[in-house]
Computed example of a mutant assay.
Amino acid sequence: MKVKKQKKHRKIITFYTSCFGFRKPFKVLCDGNFIHHLLQNKITPADKSLANILNSDVLLFTTRCVVEELKRLGRSFAESLEAARQLKIARCEHEKCEHAAKCIMEVIGENNSLHFFVGSQDTELRRQLQQVPGVPLVYGLRNALFLEPVSASHKEYVKTSEEARSHITDIEHKMLKNRIQNSTNNEKAANSADEGKELEDQTKDVKAVKKNRSSARNQMGIKDRPQFKRKKAKGPNPLSCKKKKNRNVGSLKENTEVDKKRSRKRKRTRKGQQNTTTAD
């Protein structure tokens, strides 16, 4: 595969993966003409050839209506019928077999919720599928496979959807309005509660300050109210008065000296007196 072709296919795949949520492994829904073209041009095995284009593993699907249509086409499509029976069957809700193109359109639906790549050689079917958003198309040309370029309708759909996402819907607008009202009410209630708490705290602080002041005054011996004392008669200033002299100090000294003299004098006795005393 050429480099330019690879770049084109990568751009197409990134567009569908980023804008419509396609994920690997990719699923390819094949119609009878596409299966017959693969076998006629020997593009086999089909899963590997498609994996080379999509740069990913591939799961091949078809519908019960496509298999029934290949049965009715006769022996020339017998090999294609056997190949279709080996593919996985995508569920379609048709009791009676419908035309293959109609069946594929109903399986794809309005927005291709199952994320199918559609492989078809039917130009009319591909033209109809280009109007359905999010349907990448694969077709064969001789012995090569190609991805259909992104249609203008797909690009326009992506653009409008992105613009719609950027705007708010009516339901979202109502929800946002209710949330804003609830938040404002809650803020008002919280602010009123905070103001009440602040007032209570201020009153408590004032009371505590008063108590602390009164306790500090009581500890320091300071009274709240001044008490006036009556003036009493005061005596003379002791610093301005002379000191009193003790008159008894001199007499005491004299007495002590006399006592000392008395104690020092010895009593002398005369011999005559002693004798008289003995004689008597």
Rank of each mutant, 00 (worst) to 15 (best):
V3G: 04
K4D: 08
K4H: 06
Q6F: 14
K7H: 05
R10F: 03
Y16M: 01
T17N: 08
S18K: 07
G21I: 03
R23K: 15
P25A: 08
F26T: 06
V28D: 10
L29G: 13
L29K: 08
D31A: 08
G32A: 11
N33A: 09
F34G: 06
L38G: 09
Q40Y: 11
T44R: 14
T44C: 07
A46L: 07
D47E: 15
I53S: 08
N55R: 10
N55V: 06
S56D: 04
V58A: 03
V58P: 01
L60D: 05
K71T: 10
K71M: 02
R72P: 00
G74I: 08
S76E: 12
F77Q: 02
S80Q: 04
A84C: 13
A84T: 07
Q86H: 04
I89T: 12
K96Y: 14
I104A: 05
I108H: 04
G109N: 00
N112I: 02
L114P: 00
F116G: 03
F116T: 07
L129K: 15
P136A: 09
Y139D: 11
Y139M: 12
Y139G: 13
R142L: 02
L147I: 04
E148C: 07
A152H: 12
A152Q: 15
K155C: 14
E156N: 09
E156A: 11
T160I: 08
E162L: 12
T169C: 06
E172R: 10
K177N: 11
Q181T: 09
N182F: 01
N185W: 05
E187W: 04
S192F: 03
K197S: 10
L199S: 08
L199K: 14
L199D: 04
D201V: 10
V206P: 01
S214A: 13
A216F: 05
N218Q: 14
Q219N: 03
M220E: 05
D224R: 13
R225P: 02
F228W: 02
K229I: 02
N237Y: 00
S240Q: 14
K243I: 09
K243F: 07
S251I: 06
S251H: 13
N255I: 14
N255Y: 01
T256F: 02
V258C: 08
D259R: 15
K261H: 05
R262Y: 07
R268G: 04
N275R: 03
T276I: 11
T277N: 08
